[in-house]
Computed example of a mutant assay.
Amino acid sequence: MPRRAGVQVGPAQYFATAMDLLAERGPGELKIGTLCAALGVTSGSFYHHFAGWSGFVRALLEHWETEQTARVVALTQSTTTDPVQRLDVLKHLAVDLPHAAEAAIRAWAAGDVDVAVALRRVDDRRLAALEGVLAGAVPDRAVAARLASFGQSMLVGFQQIHHPPDPALLRALLDDYHQLVLRHVDPGAGGPSIVDSR
């Protein structure tokens, strides 16, 4: 890619390009040179925004956690107070996660302690958010916890197995999961929203 003379490339562009590179080439190819080449900028641009590679990785992981975990949780909570409808919102948001990039982050975490810590934090936050949604609809807390663990495991497993990710298959899996959850829902928790939302 030719150099972008006079074009400003900010942190958001670096993060988006890094996620694309992770998805397409894996963590082994995510380097300063590769990143700058993909953006069409010099390494000076990189160092203008980040204090070295470790600073970039830390910022990238914080961005990923904010955009793909904190934002998703906030959207779910702000969209509706109905726990069954919240589950439906989560289902649709889950399809749009950057699954190929997240699979690469999981591979990266196997050899990088900082990435592993960030990944564990993301997984823990997502599991807690899903369990919180389910606890509002499923009267048995132990069942809600198991269903949350099952849902999280299904999503992580999908990311590990399907390359490239198949959104249609994931929607079908999440629809099946949704139906499983509805079997355990308190009939008074969701009223008329307890239906097949496909």
Rank of each mutant, 00 (worst) to 15 (best):
M1I: 04
P2V: 00
P2M: 06
R4V: 03
R4H: 11
G6K: 03
V7Q: 08
V7T: 06
Q8C: 00
V9K: 03
V9P: 04
V9H: 02
P11C: 06
F15R: 13
T17P: 02
D20C: 00
L21D: 01
A23E: 05
E24M: 00
R25D: 08
G26N: 02
G28D: 10
E29L: 14
E29M: 15
E29P: 10
E29K: 15
L30E: 03
K31W: 13
I32E: 13
L35D: 06
L35N: 02
C36H: 07
A37Q: 15
A37T: 14
L39I: 02
T42W: 07
S43F: 08
G44M: 13
F46R: 02
F46E: 06
H48M: 06
H48N: 02
H49F: 05
H49M: 02
F50W: 05
F50P: 09
F50H: 13
A51R: 15
G52T: 09
G52E: 14
W53G: 10
G55V: 05
G55P: 06
F56T: 06
L61F: 12
L61C: 07
E62Y: 04
H63I: 04
E65D: 14
E65L: 13
E67P: 09
T69W: 03
A70Y: 09
A70R: 11
A70C: 05
R71N: 07
R71M: 07
V72Y: 03
V73A: 13
A74I: 06
A74G: 12
A74R: 14
L75S: 12
T76K: 01
T79F: 11
T81G: 08
T81D: 14
D82S: 13
D82M: 08
R86G: 14
L87Y: 12
D88V: 01
H92L: 12
L93A: 13
A94N: 11
H99M: 10
A101P: 04
A101H: 07
E102F: 12
R106N: 03
R106L: 08
W108T: 02
A109Q: 12
A109F: 04
G111V: 08
V113K: 12
V113Q: 13
V113A: 15
V115D: 05
V115Q: 05
A116S: 14
L119R: 08
V122S: 07
V122E: 01
D124Q: 12
R125N: 07
R126H: 09
L127G: 01
L130R: 07
E131L: 00
L134C: 07
L134K: 01
A135C: 08
G136I: 10
V138Y: 02
P139Q: 13
D140T: 08
R141M: 05
V143G: 01
V143D: 09
A145I: 00
L147D: 13
L147V: 09
A148W: 00
A148C: 01
S149C: 11
L155W: 10
L155T: 08
G157Y: 08
F158M: 06
Q159R: 14
I161E: 13
I161L: 15
H162M: 11
H162V: 15
H162F: 15
H163D: 14
P164I: 10
D166S: 11
L169N: 11
L169G: 00
R171E: 12
R171T: 08
R171L: 07
Q179E: 15
Q179C: 11
V181Y: 02
R183T: 14
H184K: 01
D186V: 01
D186H: 06
P187M: 09
P187D: 05
A189V: 00
G190W: 12
G191V: 14
D196M: 04
R198V: 14
